[in-house]
């Protein structure tokens, strides 16, 4: 199952262009985690890929778009962030509203974590800390048997970066106007960690801070982003082992 060096060599271009199916991506990332040569090549190719965005023409957007964006921001004061440099050392509920890196832009973390995740051969034990103290913490969770049967979540915490990466697949499809919302819970208090509206029931998110200090991870389906959950989680798992 492990990808050979030669196989990986062939796939680097497609990987950089996000043109690989998921299973192949995971296998390649497993290889990249242990192959600095290919990891560097992949990073270079990816950098070049990002430049393709600049090959197009500028087009004047519709006149109302600017106003819609500014209104959306004004209507969501909770989306204001804490000031730069105030990245929380302590992430307990005071972090609410501090919308630190989570979604698409944090690809380095996602890549690293995904690679580690695969290389550790994550099993299906709910909330079980699989790794040794010097390695990333890896957790897996399963969806609620009735609300999200078959859904699986994996959370990898990178201690040195104080970042976690969450990947979830198989969530129930969203109905119109709904989103998935991710929560970390400590002492019964949920903290909003971001939203996703992937039509395929998949979520990938980077979460900043000392994630293992929280008690639980949960995902709810909400009618738009909420300050607190308004529905029962479709997936919930413990971030602490019984001995923690």
């Amino acid at each position: 199952m492990t990808m050979t060096h030669a196989e990986a060599e062939e796939l680097l271009g497609a990987y950089a262009l996000d043109a690989l199916p998921e299973a192949e991506t995971r296998r390649l990332e497993e290889h990249l985690a242990g192959c600095p040569e290919h990891a560097a090549a992949a990073a270079e190719l990816r950098t070049t890929q990002s430049l393709l965005a600049l090959t197009g023409d500028e087009v004047q957007p519709p006149p109302g778009l600017r106003q819609r964006i500014t209104q959306a921001i004004a209507a969501n004061p909770s989306q204001s962030r804490t000031a730069a440099g105030s990245a929380p050392a302590d992430v307990v509920p005071t972090r609410r509203g501090s919308r630190l890196p989570r979604w698409a832009p944090r690809r380095a973390y996602l890549a690293a974590a995904a690679a580690v995740l695969v290389s550790l051969g994550v099993g299906g034990v709910i909330g079980y800390q699989l790794s040794a103290s010097q390695q990333p913490l890896v957790y897996t969770f399963q969806g609620d048997p009735t609300r999200a049967p078959g859904a699986e979540a994996r959370l990898v915490y990178l201690k040195d970066r104080r970042q976690a990466v969450l990947t979830v697949s198989g969530l129930p499809r969203l109905t119109a106007g709904h989103i998935y919302e991710i929560w970390l819970i400590k002492g019964g208090v949920p903290v909003d960690e971001g939203i996703s509206a992937d039509p395929n029931g998949n979520v990938a998110a980077a979460i900043s801070g000392d994630v293992p200090r929280f008690d639980q991870l949960a995902i709810t389906v909400e009618p738009g982003e909420q300050q607190l959950p308004t529905t029962t989680p479709i997936l919930i798992g413990n971030l602490r082992t019984s001995s923690a």
């Binding site: 996000d18 998921e22 990073a43 990002s50 600049l54 090959t55 996602l110 990938a204």
Partner: peptide, 28 residues
């Protein structure tokens, strides 16, 4: 196949100089 779009990508901007010129990129 379902693709986890946001996973698996190193920072695209890390090594890119800030003053890239679009014209040259288009030419490339």
């Amino acid at each position: 196949e379902s693709i986890e779009r946001t996973a698996g990508m190193p920072d695209p901007w890390e090594a890119v100089a800030l003053d890239l010129e679009r014209k040259q990129i288009l030419e490339a």
